[in-house]
Design a protein around this nucleic acid. Structure first.
Lengths: 231, 231
DNA sequence: TTGATGGCTTGACAATTATCAAGCGAAACA
DNA sequence: TGTTTCGCTTGATAATTGTCAAGCCATCAA
């Protein structure tokens, strides 16, 4: 594996504090692979062979049931995904596919579990990571259960706006996938954008302009306990 | 603290493997308290002072936003709640209230974090617990996003039926709270029960009779990756 | 017993969201 | 350059879900 990839991985909170021996043991069986867009990396129900680390590109986590499909999350570099399944050695609950050309490091699950068992610092880092993931999913559940789709979109745009720091930004994903992520149909999303125009939003293709943040916040009523990535 | 409570706690997976020293240190600052029904134990947004362990009774975890409220989970003995917030020392994302007269052990958060940092076995047990919780919430999200309310109710009843082992059982919670947990209104739940009558369900008050499991399963299409508590 | 309470149910209606079909328009391709 | 493709949008309609109001019924207390 290229040193630069190795350094990217080492810099992740998950791997930064572990013993050098452990890290090297983990890297020994690891390898990096390049994938074209729209390749399914893992399928829900499968048993985890590898812990995945997205080095570049991006990955969609999604789930299916009864012919329906929903986007659960987007994984962007540099971060891992499907840690919980790897640790528990339990079937994946979500599938993953590349959204674009992506580079992914694959760390054998057995190695991850072995080192988890022997390296206390690694175990503690996993705790922090899982606690973070858990809280993110809880926030998402609150978003889904307590808000209408219009409110979810409004708050999503506020989070993006805050993240970008600018009142004008591009959606970083297809609208159809955003719709799925927010738990609505593409048609409904299209109408929701229209519905936010009286609340300070202008849309031109994938370009979003928040021309009245105060109005948008008045409508969206963002909450730290749902919308903040930290905390 | 009574030895029997101490033993109950020690028997939890979370505490079973830790060093005896660590456990005793944890118990030193811990105490048990009795609460009447409908007492709010913690409020979302607060900073975690204690890790809670329900010894007897039951506790509702719920969240609010903009005057709306939703039930997120029920905690039954013997198990802990709000572990992630305690470990991260981050604000509670959910509130908790007793559903009935309950006995709860309170373990000071600082002690939990200190021992988490020093006892590797405890850290590993926390990983397992958090991974479990994370996966439970992911399943819940899939349930919410991929199913209609009628399908959610049908699958909920199948899970209960499986759990009880009998085709006939009592709902263990108020219908209004079940409705909230399933992400619907009480009125809608009432109609959903009616809607399941053609699919093998009979309802008499809080008594549920699954008189045609095959029909119910044909409608509900349960999935291990959403509906199984294990895996 | 009587009355009050509160959860549950029902009906009527409204809001939200999904579905289906058609058309638009930008990007990709021959 | 023209054609195709595909995501997005729009309109019409249907299904789902929520809201409001009223009534039922079991429980509990006076």
């Amino acid at each position: 594996m290229l040193d630069s990839y190795r350094d990217d991985i080492r810099d992740l909170d998950l791997f930064a504090g572990m013993k050098q021996d452990s890290f090297e043991a983990l890297m020994r069986g690891a390898y990096v692979q390049n994938f074209p867009p729209r390749i399914e990396l893992i399928s829900e129900g499968d048993t985890p062979d590898f812990l995945h680390v997205v080095i570049s590109g991006s990955v969609d986590l999604f789930s299916s049931w009864n012919g329906r499909e929903t986007s659960m999350a987007t994984v962007r570099p540099v971060s891992t995904f499907i840690l919980a399944a790897t640790i528990k050695n339990a079937p994946y609950l979500m599938s993953a596919r590349t959204l674009e050309k992506s580079r992914v490091a694959l760390l054998p699950s057995e190695d991850v579990r072995a080192i988890f068992a022997s390296d206390g610092a690694f175990a503690r880092a996993i705790v922090t990571e899982l606690a973070q993931c858990y809280r993110a999913v809880v926030k998402n559940t609150k978003d889904l259960k307590l808000r209408t789709s219009l409110e979810r979109l409004a708050n999503y745009l506020l989070r993006q706006q805050r993240h970008n720091g600018s009142p004008e930004f591009d959606l970083r994903m297809e609208k159809r996938r955003l719709a799925s992520f927010l738990g609505m149909t593409p048609e409904n999303l299209s109408r929701a954008f229209k519905g936010l125009e009286p609340h300070g939003i202008k849309v031109a293709g994938s370009r979003i302009i928040v021309h009245d943040i105060v109005a948008l916040e008045r409508f969206a009523k963002p909450s730290a306990l749902i919308d903040r990535y930290d905390s």
